[in-house]
Design a protein around this nucleic acid. Structure first.
Lengths: 175, 175
DNA sequence: ACGCGGATCGTTACACTGTAACAGGCAGGG
DNA sequence: CCCTGCCTGTTACAGTGTAACGATCCGCGT
């Protein structure tokens, strides 16, 4: 159930295509942790060990992780971490834009660029390799804002998730 | 936990704003059932009693219903309908575009306009009254298509769900 | 030092969401 | 009639998420 096939993408970065995640690994993780520490410092919040480790686990994995998966990875033979604790840590992390929740998968991914928590992202979820690519398009935001204004609707949070096949997986089709 | 406050909306229907659901009631229900019967006729599918009643229940309610809520409404003192049966009926109904699943709520709403199952809709979910408004914007679709093409991503299904406050609820704020 | 309040975390219990597997029922075709 | 395919009923179970309570830790004012 693992084998996440290193979906390379390629992203000729137009329109602030903010990913470039060959090997989601430790680099991004360190960035995220640093951002979290700065954020906690500035706002007087507590970036506790559990929260840091939760963030690290999510960031190391290159694809969406369920809360129970995270709990499992955080647990050690003598030291079990309950899912409920992970949920609380995830609440904190999502509130401050450090991780995103993928509603269509009940899973979580690290935020792959430094946008504030208020912005909206588009998630491209590959059905073949399971990778998630986070992009931002000002054009989409504009169209959405226009539609929302027409409907007299005041948005609080936006969920845009596209399922399909990523560029890398279209090459090795049916393989 | 009910009290769905009759969120009237109003929708000055620009950009194919396809709702107009003052009182989601029986009218829409009959339309949907008729559509389902035609569809089943044409494709040689079975629009069974369970599927029809499930569709009716979803259509009568003006807001997202969970599968277990539907099961409860379909059950009678001596005749219990299991949730798993409802899920199967919902699978059928969603596959053919008669109802939509709201991923962020794990709930289902009737399709409020006659688009084919392939199209993509934008769901406006009100946090105050719980109503869901389904709209379609060609502009948003174009922006999305452009972004997806740029990313080399081949979409299969699209989820666009905006949470916030609907026009009607903004009037009676905090009330 | 002491107590206090607030936030975090551990633990248990529970509700809700969704699927797998198997058996019975029902219609249509040979 | 039997066989086949689809739908449904039933049970069991896995996965997701929250409520509630207690313990702990930490900073703060006295």
């Amino acid at each position: 159930m693992d084998e996440h096939g290193t979906c390379g993408h390629h992203g000729h970065g137009q329109d602030s295509h903010a990913h470039g995640h060959e090997s989601h690994g430790p680099a991004r993780t360190a960035d995220l942790v640093a951002r979290a520490e700065r954020l906690a410092q500035d706002l007087g919040l507590q970036f506790t060990t559990l929260r840091r480790r939760t963030l690290e686990v999510v960031a190391e994995e290159g694809r969406p992780l369920g809360a129970y998966d995270i709990a499992e990875r955080l647990s050690a033979p003598g030291k079990r971490v309950a899912a409920v604790s992970v949920y609380r840590a995830l609440d904190f992390l999502t509130e401050h834009g450090l991780v995103h929740r993928i509603a269509s998968r009940n899973a979580f991914v690290p935020c792959e660029h430094g946008h504030g928590a208020g912005e909206s992202a588009v998630f491209l979820i590959c059905r073949s390799c399971g990778s998630v690519d986070e992009t931002i398009s000002a054009e989409i935001e504009r169209s959405l804002d226009r539609t929302l204004a027409q409907a007299g609707f005041k948005p609080a949070s936006r969920i845009v998730e596209i399922e399909g096949e990523c560029g890398a997986c279209q090459g090795r089709q049916g393989e």
